[in-house]
Write a protein that binds this DNA or RNA. Structure first.
Lengths: 233, 233
DNA sequence: GACGTTATTATGTATATACATATTATGTCA
DNA sequence: TGACATAATATGTATATACATAATAACGTC
C-alpha cells in the first residue's frame, strides 16, 4: 500500500468519470472539494486537481472558484477530431494515395475569396486546384487560394511530387484557423472532377488559416456524398 | 521581479507556440529538454512540463521519453467542437427555439438501426421523431430510436414540454458516443418535413450513445443545406 | 434593509523534490 | 559480430507547501 498503491490521476479521473456516468454524482450536483477528495482517494490535492481539471476541460464538470465543482447540467461535451493531412487520412483508411494537379496559376481572386480572407478585392493570388484519390477513386477535390504576400516562396513550386496541402504544412507557419463544414449539391465542374452526378450531394470543408493579422490560405475541400467524417467521444 | 514575475505556464505555452508558429523551432526539430527550458524561462521544470504537455495534447509537439520533444512534422491539429444541445445551439445563434413532436411510439426497429447499435434484429424500441425550429424555420429534423432496456422510464414521456434530446441528457447516463457527419440528398419525407426541395442537399449528423456494453440511443439529425458547422483552432 | 467593506473559501498555479517508466545508448560476453 | 544485460536520460507523475485569485458569505455602517 505504501509503495505500489500510489494513486495516479488517471485512475482518479476514471473513477470520477464513472461516478458522473452512473449518476452517483448527478447532473448539476456539487461534488466534494479537492481537499475532501484527496483524503478519500488517499492522494495529494494536486493529483485530484489534475483529474478534475481534465474532466472540466472535457466539459463534464464545471468549476468555479469558491463556488466549487459541479457536474455539468448539459454536458456540452466537445467532440475532438484530428484534421490530418489528406494523404495520411487516406492511407490510414488503407487506401492508396495519389493526387492530380488540375491547375496552378496566379489570378485575381474573386470577391468571395478575398472577403473571406480579409484581403483587398481583386488581389492577385495563387490559385491551385487538385484532386486527391484513394485507390484511384476521387476522394477530395481541393480548390485553394494562397496569399502570396504570406508565402512568396510558393510561387515557383510545381506541385509535381508534393501536394499543395503538404507543401504548406511543411513550409508555412500558421497558428490559427477557421473551419466550416456543410453540405451542398455538386455544381457542373465539381461533379465532373469528382466523377459524380451533377446535383448529387457533396460534403464540403472550408478552411482559412492565418497567423495573427495575416491570412495565409483559403481552401475548399469537396468530398463525394459517400464520405463519412467520424469521431468518438 | 521576485514577486510579480512568476512565470505562468500560460505565458510559457504561448511563447513556445509562437516559436513553433514562427519556425524558430522548425517542424520535426528536437527542442530543448525540460531542464534546459526551465532554466531559460526561469521557472520550475513542472511548469515547463505542463506547458509542453498541453502543446503535445494539442498535437503541435510530439514527446517521447528519453528521445525528447520535437515539433510535430505534420501538425495533425485537432479541431474541437462542442456538441451543445440543440436548443442551446439555436439560442446561442440568436434564434427563437421551438420544437414540434412528429411521432412517438414503440416499434420494431429496422435492421439498419439495430445493427448500428449492436442489438438483436427486430427489437422493440421507442421511435421518436421531431422537428427543431429556429425563428419558426425548420432547423433540424431529429429521428431517434431509444433502447427501452437502457432507459425504461422514457416510456410514459409525452415530450410535450421537453424535447427527447433534453430529456435524455438530463435523465440518462452516457459515457461514450460515436458521431458521424456526412452529406446526402433529401428523401421525400425528409424534404417535406424540413420544407426543402426533394433531392436538395442535407447535412446529416448521426450519433450513437452508450455506456459500456449497453447502447442507449441512436439519433439521426438532418439539417437543410444552409446549415454551417463552424469551429476555430 | 440597502450597500459597501472585509473575511472566508475553493480553486488555480508555482516550486522543490522524489521516484517511475520508457527508450536509447553502451558495454559485455559468447 | 550479434545477442543481451545494464546504464543513462528525458519525460511522466506524485507530493508537500506556499501563495494567488475569484467569488461568495459575513459583517457593519448608514
Amino acid at each position: 500500500m505504501t509503495a505500489t498503491a500510489r494513486k495516479s490521476f488517471h485512475a482518479i479521473k476514471a473513477e470520477m468519470a464513472r461516478r458522473i456516468a452512473e449518476r452517483v454524482w448527478a447532473p448539476g450536483a456539487l461534488i466534494p472539494g479537492e481537499e475532501v477528495l484527496s483524503v478519500e482517494f488517499g492522494c495529494a490535492r494536486a493529483t485530484v486537481n489534475r483529474a478534475l481539471q481534465e474532466l472540466a476541460r472535457g466539459g463534464v464538470l464545471v468549476r468555479k472558484r469558491k463556488a466549487g465543482t459541479r457536474v455539468a447540467l448539459h454536458p456540452m461535451r466537445e467532440a475532438r477530431f484530428v484534421i490530418p493531412i489528406i494523404r495520411q487520412e487516406i492511407e490510414t483508411k488503407g487506401g492508396k494515395y495519389q493526387f492530380k494537379l488540375l491547375s496552378n496559376q496566379v489570378e485575381k481572386a474573386p470577391a468571395s475569396i478575398t472577403q473571406r480572407m480579409g484581403l483587398t478585392k481583386g488581389k492577385e493570388m495563387l490559385h491551385v486546384r487538385c484532386l486527391h484519390l484513394s485507390d484511384g477513386k476521387a476522394y477530395q477535390y481541393e480548390d485553394r487560394w494562397v496569399n502570396l504576400d504570406a508565402v512568396p516562396s510558393i510561387r515557383g513550386e510545381t506541385f509535381e511530387t508534393i501536394s499543395p496541402n503538404e507543401w504548406l504544412v511543411t513550409h508555412s507557419p500558421f497558428s490559427q484557423a477557421e473551419i466550416v463544414f456543410h453540405a451542398d449539391v455538386a455544381g457542373a465542374e465539381e461533379a465532373d472532377i469528382l466523377g459524380v452526378a451533377e446535383k448529387d450531394a457533396v460534403f464540403i470543408v472550408e478552411r482559412v488559416t492565418f497567423v495573427p493579422q495575416k491570412p495565409i490560405t483559403f481552401v475548399r475541400m469537396i468530398h463525394p456524398s459517400s464520405h463519412r467524417m467520424v469521431t468518438q467521444l
